[in-house]
C-alpha cells in the first residue's frame, strides 16, 4: 500500500508562516509522499513561495507540486518554481517524476491544467484569438500530462498518479456554481488520464467543490483543495497491483521536456487568465 498525502490551495503568505508545519511534521506517520496541488501562494511572488518552501523544507518525505493560477498571478511562475525547488520540492509541468517507496516505483505526472469545460459543455478552438488561445493552452497542458503519464508507464511504475490544479471532471466541482464549471477544469485532462492510465488523480482549485469523483474511464479523482478536505492534508492508500522494482531510487524525469517539446516547459504555461471571482479559487 502506497500512502499518498495531498493538499492544494493552501494560499500561504507572510502572515500564515508556520501554519501548516506542525501538521506536516506528522507526515512520516501518515504518508510516503506529499503532493501539493497548486495555489500554494496568494499572488505568485517569491516572498510567498518562500513561506511555502519553509513549510515543507527538510520533510522526510518527497514533496511534489504543481503550480496553480494564483501562483501565476504575478507572471513570475519561474521565480516561484525556483524558490520551491531550492527547498527540495519537485515542481512538475508536463513532466513526471518517480519516487521509490520500499522498492515500488511510484510515478507522479503533473500539470497545472486549465479550464475550458467538460464534454458536451466546453469551449472550442474557434473564433477570436483569445478564445483559441484559451482552449489551446488547456490542450497543450493536457498533452503534456499524457506524455508524462506514458513516460511513467514506459519506466515501469507500479503506481501512477496524475497531479493537477484544475479539475479533470465535474464530479468534484459539485457545490460550485454550475455557471463557472468551464473555468474550473477541462475534460481534456480526464481524457489524457484515461488514455494513458492512472491509479489516482488529485486536483485542487474548487474550494466549494466535493472531494470524490471519477473519470469516465474509471480513474478515481480527489479534490484536495484545503477548504474541501478540511484538514492540513488528506491521505489516500493505493494498492500496488503492478510489478515491483527495486531499481534506482534517484529522481527521474519524463514528459514533454524529455520528449523534446518546447510547449509545456515548467513555469511557462501561457496566459494567466484567472477564474471568475465567485466560488473556489
Amino acid at each position: 500500500m502506497i500512502r499518498v498525502a495531498a493538499v492544494g490551495d493552501i494560499h500561504l503568505g507572510p502572515d500564515s508562516r508556520g501554519l501548516l508545519r506542525p501538521a506536516f511534521d506528522t507526515l512520516p506517520d501518515h504518508a510516503d509522499l506529499l503532493l501539493l496541488a497548486g495555489d500554494l501562494t496568494r499572488h505568485g511572488i517569491p516572498e510567498e513561495a518562500q513561506v511555502v518552501a519553509d513549510e515543507v523544507a527538510g520533510l522526510p518525505v518527497p514533496v511534489i507540486a504543481v503550480l496553480g493560477n494564483h501562483d501565476h498571478h504575478s507572471e513570475r511562475p519561474e521565480d516561484v518554481t525556483d524558490v520551491l525547488r531550492a527547498a527540495g520540492v519537485t515542481v512538475l509541468e508536463g513532466e513526471g517524476t518517480v519516487v521509490d517507496v520500499d522498492g515500488v516505483r511510484v510515478g507522479v505526472a503533473g500539470t497545472k491544467g486549465f479550464g475550458g469545460g467538460f464534454a458536451g459543455r466546453s469551449g472550442s478552438e474557434f473564433g477570436e484569438p483569445e478564445m483559441k488561445a484559451f482552449v489551446r493552452h488547456t490542450r497543450g497542458l493536457a498533452d503534456g500530462l499524457r506524455r508524462a503519464l506514458d513516460g511513467l508507464a514506459a519506466d515501469g511504475c507500479a503506481v501512477r498518479i496524475a497531479l493537477t490544479h484544475f479539475s479533470p471532471v465535474p464530479d468534484t466541482l459539485v457545490g460550485e456554481p454550475l455557471e463557472i464549471y468551464p473555468f474550473l477544469g477541462s475534460y481534456l485532462l480526464a481524457e489524457a488520464m484515461d488514455e494513458s492510465g492512472a491509479d489516482l488523480a488529485v486536483h485542487g482549485h474548487a474550494h466549494l467543490g466535493t472531494e470524490h469523483g471519477i473519470t469516465s474511464g474509471g480513474v478515481r479523482v480527489r479534490n484536495v483543495a484545503q477548504p474541501v478536505i478540511r484538514r492540513a492534508f488528506a491521505v489516500y492508500g493505493l494498492p500496488v497491483n503492478g510489478f515491483h522494482d527495486s531499481g534506482t531510487a534517484g529522481p527521474a524525469t519524463y514528459g514533454s521536456r524529455a520528449h523534446g517539446s518546447a510547449t509545456d516547459r515548467p513555469g511557462t504555461s501561457g496566459p494567466a487568465t484567472d477564474r471568475p471571482a465567485t466560488g473556489g479559487s
Binding site: 500500500m1 500512502r3 501554519l19 501548516l20 506542525p22 501538521a23 506528522t26 501518515h30 491509479d199 489516482l200 478515481r220 484545503q226 477548504p227 478536505i229 478540511r230 484538514r231 492540513a232 492534508f233 488528506a234 491521505v235 489516500y236 492508500g237 493505493l238 494498492p239
Partner: peptide, 16 residues
Amino acid sequence: IALADVSAPDHSEELS
C-alpha cells in the same frame, strides 16, 4: 466564513 482546519488528518482513505 469558516476557518481552515490545519490539523493533521485522523484517518486515511484506502482505495481498492
